Computed example of a mutant assay.
Amino acid sequence: MSVSVLDIQLESVDRAVAIDVGTSLLQNDPDSPFHSVVDDQDMIDERCLLILADIEGPELRTTARVGFCTVRVCDEFVELYRFYVAPHFRRLGIARKTLALLSEYVSNEGFTDFYIEATKKEALEFWVVAAEDFAVFPAGHMKWRLSFAPEDLQSREQS
Rank of each mutant, 00 (worst) to 15 (best):
Asp113Arg: 07
Val85Gln: 05
Ile94Glu: 01
Leu26Arg: 01
Ala130Gln: 11
Glu157Asn: 14
Ser159Phe: 12
Glu104Met: 09
Asp152Arg: 02
Asp14Ala: 07
Val3Arg: 14
Arg47Thr: 09
Ser103Tyr: 05
Asp20Met: 11
Arg145Ser: 08
Cys48Ala: 09
Ser155Ala: 15
Ser12Arg: 13
Phe89Trp: 12
His141Ile: 09
Arg82Asp: 02
Ala123Glu: 11
Ala123Met: 12
Leu80Met: 09
Asn28His: 11
Val38Pro: 00
Pro150Cys: 14
Leu146Trp: 07
Gly140Asn: 10
Ser155Trp: 13
Leu102Trp: 01
Pro138Tyr: 06
Val17Arg: 14
Asp14Cys: 07
Glu109His: 10
Lys120Met: 12
Met43Pro: 05
Pro138Thr: 07
His88Asn: 15
Thr23Met: 06
Cys69Tyr: 00
Tyr105Asn: 03
Asn28Asp: 11
Leu80Trp: 01
Pro58Cys: 03
Asp31Leu: 08
Gly140His: 10
Phe134Tyr: 10
Met43Cys: 11
Gln41Lys: 10
Val66Met: 08
Arg145Leu: 09
Asn108Ser: 15
Phe148His: 03
Glu76Leu: 09
Glu76Gly: 05
Leu49Met: 05
Trp127Gln: 09
Ile44Ser: 01
Met142Pro: 01
Phe89Asn: 08
Ser36Ala: 14
Glu76Trp: 08
Phe148Val: 05
Pro58Glu: 06
Asp29Cys: 05
Phe114Asp: 01
Met142Leu: 12
Leu153His: 04
Leu49Tyr: 02
Met142Thr: 10
Tyr115Lys: 10
Val37Asp: 00
Phe137Met: 12
Gln158Lys: 15
Glu46Val: 04
Ser2Pro: 15
Gln158Ala: 15
Arg156Cys: 05
Val21Trp: 00
Gly110Met: 10
Asp113Asn: 11
Ala16Tyr: 08
Phe77Ser: 07
His35Cys: 05
Thr119Asn: 13
Glu46Ile: 04
Asp133Gln: 14
Ala149His: 12
Asp152Lys: 01
Leu101Ser: 04
Val3Gln: 13
Trp127Met: 11
Ser32Trp: 00
Leu26Met: 06
Pro150Leu: 13
Phe68Thr: 03
Glu122Met: 12
Ala86Lys: 04
Val106Pro: 01
Ser12Pro: 04
Val21Asn: 03
Ala139Thr: 02
Val73Met: 04
Met142Phe: 11
Asn28Gln: 14
Leu50Arg: 02
Phe126Trp: 07
Thr70Tyr: 01
Leu50Gln: 02
Val71Gln: 01
Gln154Ser: 11
Ala95Lys: 01
Trp144Ile: 08
Asp75Thr: 12
Tyr115His: 12
Pro150Met: 14
Leu10Cys: 04
Asp7Val: 09
Leu25Cys: 02
Val13Asn: 06
Leu101Glu: 06
Ser12Asn: 15
Arg47Ile: 13
Leu92Ala: 13
Leu49Arg: 00
Glu11Tyr: 06
Thr119Val: 13
Lys97Phe: 09
His88Pro: 11
Thr63Met: 11
Val129Trp: 14
Pro58Gln: 04
Arg91Ile: 06
Val106Leu: 03
Asn28Cys: 08
Met1Val: 14
Phe126Asn: 03
Thr70Ser: 14
Leu50Cys: 05
Asp31Gly: 07
Glu104Tyr: 07
Pro150Lys: 13
Gln9Met: 10
His141Gln: 09
Asp45Phe: 07
Asp40Trp: 09
Met1Tyr: 13
Thr112Glu: 12
Glu59Ile: 08
Asp31Thr: 08
